[in-house]
Design a protein around this nucleic acid. Structure first.
Lengths: 226, 226
DNA sequence: CGTTGGATTGAAACGGCTCAATGTTTGTGG
DNA sequence: CCACAAACATTGAGCCGTTTCAATCCAACG
């Protein structure tokens, strides 16, 4: 019986969007959110589908990707706990353009359009959080698009590695969070080219491959300077 | 004396974001917005600048672009009356990543962070409008990024032309709203290649060039099918 | 221990860019 | 209204980076 509440609690409490609310407000939101789980490989939604829910990742991760006309796949981004998707269908009543696929066992919570709109009206500060998130995403996507047309594959790979590192790092070792195939798709190239370019970067003594998914950044400055 | 009010009125009345509000609310917003004009080529803001205003185009148009590390320019999009920019700096207190340049004599109106936040709290429906706009922009930017990596230059040009046409068109004639240089940058190529590809499309009887900026779409289906 | 899928490497083909020459408009001043 | 300049558009040739396809290598896993 408390099961349902627990589910809701675990769902919402993690979400940065609602973090700033007090316990009472949080409870109200929990009432409106529902929880759902997906096995690895299952689709939370797919392009062409309509939907009226905002989906927030609770545990696990979602792979957002698009298919071009020709069927080629483009990894758009990966959603981690606390991040959300579905805003296009939700706010614009359009069909999804992305596919959202669980990369591992993943649980999400979902809020319907009408519930969310009521919440936004009642607690306008929530919308500021969402606005923040969306404007960040616009920026990231535009940055990515700019890189596709103005930088070489090698530069994009180097930028990606440095981005992974972040400003604060002791060891200078990054762990690739994506399969090679997805990494390649994300930076707009092929697995073969990723392999070749990593090799080149290593030969230039800019990086060192520790294991298949661990890479030590030896020279951050020159990686960006390429 | 009524001068200032007129300026405000002309400013806000055009803006879709606020369209749904009643006259009294509109008046209140007018009080908080300020108006500014730019000559062709002037920058409304530039990358690296901090700012705490949302900028809404009132008349004219703004060219939003980025510069890559190497100095290459990427046209991100063009803002027409009613559209806004500045959300990254405003909601996230980050520096601008884009340059915003007037393409012609242009007037904008601006609302400061604190004024806007107050408005959002007071009239939550405004935030729904902004949410709509931002989620649309995320979608557009992701679509653009996907095209860069999954489609050929020829396909991107063709898609661009068809997008210009829109679903409703009598004549099937599109008017290029951008200089060739900007068009090329927008679709991620060079003016030379645009020229060559337009020629090829014409030789395939998919389009017909009427004048330098007018193009007749002869075969929309096959343009997308390339 | 074999099988299967991913990662690497090689060779060849191709698409698009650069640079340079030529052609075409546009606008301006005589 | 014409002439000329300056900017822009087109075309050509050569080059370079990346993809493709195929072969091989490696590693994880049943």
């Amino acid at each position: 019986m408390t099961n349902k509440n627990h589910e809701h609690k675990s769902c919402v409490s993690l979400v940065p969007i609602f973090n700033h609310l007090d316990a009472e407000q949080m409870n109200e939101i929990m009432e409106t959110a529902s929880s759902q789980s997906f096995k690895k490989g299952e689709l939370v939604y797919h392009a062409g589908e309509t939907s009226d829910v905002l989906t927030i990742v609770n545990k696990g991760s979602l792979r957002l990707y698009r298919l071009s006309e020709s069927g080629k796949e483009q990894l758009v981004r990966v959603l981690r706990p606390g991040e959300f998707t579905g805003e296009l269908a939700l706010f614009n009543e359009k069909v999804h353009e992305n596919y959202a696929e669980a990369m591992e066992p993943t649980s999400v919570c979902q809020i319907t359009r009408s519930d969310l709109q009521a919440l936004l009206i009642k607690y306008p500060s929530i919308s500021l959080k969402i606005l923040q998130e969306l404007s960040t995403r616009v920026d990231q996507s535009e940055t990515q698009a700019t890189r596709f047309t103005t930088e070489s594959t090698e530069q994009r790979l180097a930028s990606y590695l440095v981005d992974l590192l972040g400003p604060d790092s002791q060891t200078n070792i990054v762990t690739l969070p994506l399969a090679k195939k997805d990494l390649a798709s994300y930076i707009g190239t092929t697995p073969e080219t990723v392999s070749r370019k990593l090799k080149e970067l290593e030969e230039m003594n800019l990086i060192k491959r520790i294991s298949s998914s661990k890479i030590k950044i030896l020279d951050e400055d020159n990686l960006l300077f390429l």
